[in-house]
């Protein structure tokens, strides 16, 4: 049996801020179409790991590969810039605080990068914006400014903006953490829809229910290492590690009850 190249391959990822080691030799692969949740207490390194995948927070050592191509290549500055800008077009990212461009309309938020980087004409870009915004249920707000939207609507637009670049991989960095509870569901629904379309997704989240219902695999991180990983049914129902059990007891009401 030949070994298939993993879609995302993280090898010996290590990152330190001075003496503080936030990622300690992490190895992780993700297959095409797989949906992976990264959970863990704050400060566990989960966001840092996610942000290392598109080299937003560069690793101290180790490699990140997307379809066998190293993302965090060491290159002379100009060549690195060219390389990383090209790689990032394939890696969509959604942030906790949306980071929509407030000076642009919803339409312009979605079309700016495709027009600039892929040379789409105005007509093509408009069509793309209409498609992507319909996909997240935001067609009616196409000519609004972000300041006129609710948090949930902003995050849906941010997802459409990322999808407009037709990425191969989507990274979600606590996409619903900043939302009012009643707005979480509309964003989760969009993410579920993406999951059904077999988008490869890596999701850093605090929402255990969402991770359990949508993800193929759950990775529990603590203190810069992967403590435990497996299908949600295993990690959530029968964790083997003490640290996982402690974390779940605090974060998963269901687990706390069933383990009494």
């Amino acid at each position: 049996m030949t070994e298939k190249t993993p879609f995302v391959d993280i090898r010996h990822a290590q990152k330190a801020y001075g003496d503080l080691e936030v990622l300690k030799d992490i190895n992780l692969t993700v297959s095409k179409g797989e949906i992976v949740a990264i959970i863990g207490p704050s400060g566990s390194g989960k966001s840092t790991l996610l942000r290392a995948i598109n080299d937003l927070d560069p690793l101290s050592s180790g490699e990140v590969l997307l379809e066998g191509v190293q993302v965090n290549k060491t290159l002379p500055h100009r060549q690195y810039e060219k390389h990383i800008n090209e790689m990032r077009q394939h890696i969509g990212m959604v942030f906790q605080h949306f980071n929509l461009f407030p000076h642009l309309t919803v339409r312009e938020n979605v079309t700016m990068a495709p027009k600039l980087l892929k040379g789409l004409s105005n007509a093509e870009a408009d069509q793309l914006a209409e498609e992507q915004l319909a996909h997240v249920g935001m067609s009616e707000r196409i000519d609004y400014y972000p300041s006129q939207l609710s948090g949930g609507q902003k995050q849906r637009v941010a997802i459409a903006r990322a999808l407009a670049m037709k990425p191969k991989l989507m990274l979600f960095d606590e996409a619903t953490s900043a939302l009012d509870p009643e707005l979480v569901e509309e964003v989760n629904l969009v993410m579920k829809k993406l999951a059904e379309e077999h988008m490869t997704m890596i999701i850093v989240t605090h929402e255990m229910d969402f991770a359990a219902s949508v993800c193929d695999r759950v990775i529990f991180m603590d203190g810069g290492v992967v403590v435990e990983e497996g299908p949600p049914s295993v990690v959530f129902q029968n964790p083997t590690q003490e640290r996982t059990k402690n974390f779940l007891r605090k974060h998963l009401a269901q687990y706390a009850e069933s383990s009494k």
Partner: peptide
């Protein structure tokens, strides 16, 4: 200007 703005633009593939 919020640092997240530069980050969001860079993750879309824009140069600095």
């Amino acid at each position: 200007v919020d640092k997240g703005q530069m980050e969001a633009a860079r993750t879309l593939g824009l140069s600095r």
